[in-house]
Design a protein around this nucleic acid. Structure first.
Lengths: 192, 192
DNA sequence: TTCTCTCTAGAGAGCAGACTCTAGAGAGCG
DNA sequence: CGCTCTCTAGAGTCTGCTCTCTAGAGAGAA
């Protein structure tokens, strides 16, 4: 049989390209068919419906992002937080299309409609990620005395915010941004 | 004549409600007709097309937001920056529906398709806003020595990021967030 | 070679949304 | 009271998207 004439990842790449050019709603099956130059039969052979495609886009992007960050949690909390912020920016700079997926947020991918398989895959990764974050926050609280909301804001939300300014304006992320983000995080976590 | 049986702002309110419940693409004419319980004739009598409706939603939300912040630019730069961050959070807390408009970003409202009138109205306000920001940044650079990218990140992007965490998760913004944001801004602008 | 089973192509049904069009309701004016 | 002109109601058209269905291409097994 013509074993996988089209690569599934090429279909997801096309979907992500559509996302980067618009909103997550710009990911339509019809659009992917055009962008990836495949037939609807090929798409529906892989994904039972649009929700499953969206799920695959999300899970692939977030999975890749998390996989790259997990090693950074080892070590001293403040250093880990700084590395996390720095690497978040550099990952987005290296993967701007996938960065759009993260910035759009899970909610934009209609998780309620996902097939059970996609959902449980996501929940498994999410649980693992949450546990890492929980431990980091605990470590940072004892190390710095800051409250949880402040830590989450500075360590997790701030790097995204830094990236959003550039991607949202259609500009490339400057290399200097990594250093700025790391410096802000360190300043904040150092402040008594 | 039955002078304005329906209020135009009620139509915009319905549109904003749809946005808060989904993405900006959830603002459909058909959806607004249902949500506001008006006829398509009434909607099209006010807005020539969907783009004009989106423009009105954006301009109303951003106009209200900016109007509330303009007075804060007066005075000493660091204090102004702190007030700006604090007020951004409190405005979003008081106007969560309109906050969704800001968080979605101009790009999601398809400004390329706007009628000329809406576009120039936006550009006028944007120019005024940019000028205020430019002056504030200049003041902060001389006062603190920080670079532009860092100032924009901390003063403008950080408050949005703080708000996004709560709205994105469907939670109310806690009152304590204002203080956290202001403190982070002050800490950052104090760091030599 | 022939058979099988996976994968692909693409037509078409069904549906939702943007927008158009026409009839008419009714406030204000004379 | 009747006329006008704005605003409203809602049916209807058209476009585009999701998803289904069927025919068939072709690798690998026998």
């Amino acid at each position: 049989m013509p074993r996988l004439v089209h690569d599934t990842s090429a279909i997801l790449d096309a979907a992500v390209r559509l996302l980067a050019a618009g909103s997550p709603d710009a990911i339509t099956i019809a659009g992917v068919i055009r962008e990836a130059a495949v037939s609807s039969g090929s798409v529906y052979h892989r994904f039972p419906n649009r929700a499953a495609l969206l799920a695959a886009v999300w899970n692939r992007a977030v999975g890749g992002f998390h996989a790259e960050l997990y090693p950074l949690f080892a070590g001293e909390p403040v250093a880990a937080a700084a590395a996390l912020g720095r690497r978040t920016v550099s990952w987005c700079r290296a993967n701007p299309a996938d960065a759009w997926v993260l910035l759009a947020g899970l909610g934009a991918f209609e998780p309620a409609a996902w097939p059970a398989e996609s959902r449980s895959a996501r929940e498994a990764d999410q649980a693992r990620w949450d546990e890492h974050i929980r431990q980091l926050v605990t470590g940072l609280k004892t190390a710095t005395g800051h409250e949880t909301a402040e830590i989450l804001l500075v360590v997790l939300d701030l790097p995204y915010a830094a990236v959003r300014r550039y991607l949202g304006a259609g500009r490339d992320i400057p290399a200097s941004l990594e250093g700025i983000v790391e410096r802000v995080i360190r300043t904040q976590l150092a402040g008594h």
